[in-house]
Amino acid sequence: MQQLNIFSLPLGPGIGDIDQVSKALSKIERHQIQFVCWPEFGYQPDVAFAIAYNGTNILLKYFVEESAITAIHRATNGPVYKDSCVEFFIAFNNEEEYYNLEFNCAGSCHIGFGGERENRIEVPVDLVKQIKYQASFHTGHNSGSDLIKWELSLIIPISVFQFHQFTSFENIWCRINFYKCGDDLPQPHYLSWSKIYSTIPNFHLPEFFGKALFAEDIKINQA
């Protein structure tokens, strides 16, 4: 089972500036989303994430390199998993229920809550829209590569987690997993950070979530 510490990022008054958050997240440790749990879907893009927090916000950035991208589904709480999609699932403490936060490469978001894959409760659109995001794209044509690189930076406020009454993330334990998928891409794929053991693709298996703690401050590499 994967484990990590989610450190506090001391950004001061810049916490609401998505550009500053994106630059800061590029300077901290990255974690690979590397497990291809279903060999029949063997395509493996290069995917990593950096995560931190600052009081009442989760700060998350994905770094992706893949052969094709789409961002067709732009409505909030739409089926963004069909596009070039990254996902973040989190269950607080030892609770069975968890939140699934899903984002396509353009920043469109779907959030649900519940204890299983079916019958999930959608988080209201007005709360989902409180998430700040920044998406960027780069082609590899100048280096002779056909791969597309894209990054997605996110400021996820504590208010999004509407079924919990937290005032801060500090010292909270959680169970988490991170994913990359693209159901309708030319090469469908399903990658996870914490390995899943299932006969068919299914990210909604909290028994395979990793563990994490919202810990104390991290020092940013200024290089």
Rank of each mutant, 00 (worst) to 15 (best):
E216R: 14
N100Q: 08
L9S: 00
A71C: 13
E66Y: 04
W150D: 03
N142P: 02
G16V: 05
C174T: 11
V64A: 01
F35K: 11
S67R: 09
I58L: 04
V80C: 06
F35T: 15
Y62A: 00
A106F: 08
N93D: 15
D217G: 11
V160M: 11
I6Y: 01
D183G: 13
P124A: 09
E216L: 13
G114I: 05
Y81E: 09
L191D: 04
S192N: 10
F214C: 07
I148Y: 00
Q187K: 15
A223P: 07
I111T: 14
Q2T: 14
K149M: 02
E170M: 10
H138G: 04
I90Y: 05
T76C: 09
Q187W: 14
I15D: 06
I155W: 02
P13E: 08
K61T: 01
N57R: 08
D83C: 03
W150C: 02
A50M: 02
F161V: 05
Q34E: 13
K61A: 01
E87V: 05
G16K: 13
N77L: 04
E87A: 14
K23E: 11
I90M: 07
E95K: 15
H189K: 11
K211T: 13
E122P: 15
P39M: 08
S153W: 00
L213T: 06
V86C: 07
